[in-house]
Amino acid sequence: MMKSNKQRRAEIKARRLERAADLKAKLRTQDARQLSAGGLVPGMAMADKSRLAHYNTTFGEVPDFYLDRAYTCRDCGAQEVWTAKQQKWWHEVAQGSVYSQAVRCRACRQARRALREAALRNEGANLLGDEVARLRALATKKPTADSLAQVEAALQSKWRSLRVVAIEVMGHWAGPAQIERLQAFVANSGDSYGSWEYEASKAAAKALARKAEDDSEC
């Protein structure tokens, strides 16, 4: 009967745990150099010290070898192995601290990363929504020095949608200074479709058209 991927992963994990325990037991009576005298044994990987030379070795020398290390995931409590190959990649390729240790299993790391990314996405979305709502509220009142400054700041925002709302607010105020500014946006439409100049020109033209329509109804 063919084994499932889950069964194969469980067997690999069991072998790694057994190998890590065996290495740990052997290192009680001999150091890594003695252990590898006849060549690297399974569960060991040679360290490339040239890739570790940038570390501050005040607290100890960089390793000669990496050894499989068993650990308990701090989140789910699962027994895992941080393999020598994984350590070598982490320290020498990813440039992780040579003094760091694995503390979470892969599944918990992925779950933690997903939560962090989701939180960042939600934070950004909420922040933008709050800024848009705050800016649109300014359109219902007469402009003041503070609200004018807020609109100017919004026009410099990294979010295009917020800049468009700032143009809309200027259209609602429709004072001489705002009309002149909107006309300048229209005149500077740019040649590139999808550019900010093109988008600002469209938003300003729409705001001016709304103002003209409101005036015609008076």
Rank of each mutant, 00 (worst) to 15 (best):
L208W: 11
A204G: 00
A78S: 14
L148D: 11
L128E: 01
E80K: 09
K26N: 00
E61R: 13
E152W: 02
L27R: 09
A177Y: 05
S216Q: 15
D48S: 15
K26D: 01
G129N: 11
D130K: 13
R136C: 03
A207V: 11
E117P: 01
A184E: 11
L138Y: 04
Y99D: 10
R116D: 11
E131C: 10
S201C: 05
V169C: 08
Q86S: 14
A107P: 05
A78W: 09
A207N: 05
Q87W: 09
Y198I: 12
A119I: 04
A125D: 06
G60I: 06
S216P: 04
C76A: 05
R113M: 09
A14P: 02
V169N: 07
G129H: 09
M46G: 06
A53E: 14
E61I: 08
E80D: 06
V98E: 02
S216N: 15
S192F: 14
D64G: 03
A32N: 03
L135N: 00
G38F: 03
G39M: 06
V62P: 02
R116M: 08
D146F: 05
A207H: 00
R51L: 15
N56Y: 02
A10G: 08
L67I: 15
A37Y: 11
S36C: 13
V164N: 12
R210F: 02
L120Q: 13
D215Y: 14
D31E: 06
A177C: 05
A149C: 06
D22E: 11
